[in-house]
């Protein structure tokens, strides 16, 4: 799966250019609130938050340099949905390298996700976000369109 396919599952309404929360719990709550506000088919905020908190209990999803990929499957969503968020100041997200996390890619999918699209999307993103220059461009992008354009560059 390429990045263009992953971007089909997000939208300008699912882009949070500057998170306000300063800790992990607050960021998770803000990300979930963003999902509910940005996607008309997601209404069960508590169920989504509980799933993402459980996923973090399995192991922190902040595995990229300055990037976290909160993800999982829940009955509370009907289709693969991707939310993107940034934190200029950075947040302690229990990252593998101990550094603050600035970029967040949230992927949530229903239990029946034919073709494991969300795992393939996750693989495409974790691979792509290894690039230092790309992460700098994403942090500097002025809006959703330029963010997607940078992410979609070969």
């Amino acid at each position: 799966m390429d990045i263009a396919e992953v971007l089909q599952h997000t939208s300008p309404e699912l882009f949070l250019p500057e998170l306000e929360a300063g800790d992990k719990a607050g960021v998770l709550a803000e990300l979930v609130a963003g999902l509910v506000a940005g996607s008309p088919t997601i209404t069960k905020q508590d169920a989504v938050l509980q799933m993402l908190e459980s996923r973090e209990a399995l192991g922190s999803t902040a595995v990229g340099p300055g990037v976290a990929f909160p993800h999982g499957r829940t009955l509370a969503v009907q289709r693969l949905t991707v939310l993107v968020a940034r934190s200029g100041k950075g947040v302690d997200f229990d990252s593998v390298d101990g550094d603050p996390t600035h970029l967040f890619f949230v992927l949530i999918a229903p239990p029946q996700d034919s073709g494991h699209k969300y795992i393939k999307s996750l693989a495409a993103l974790t691979d792509k976000l290894q690039d230092d220059t790309l992460r700098e461009k994403l942090m500097a992008a002025a809006d959703y369109e330029s963010f997607c354009a940078a992410l979609g560059e070969e």
Binding site: M51, S54, T74, P111
Partner: peptide, 12 residues
């Protein structure tokens, strides 16, 4: 609500 959360965690 608890059954949904349980199914989500068990699937995870």
């Amino acid at each position: 609500q608890k059954l949904v959360a349980l199914q989500d965690i068990e699937a995870m």
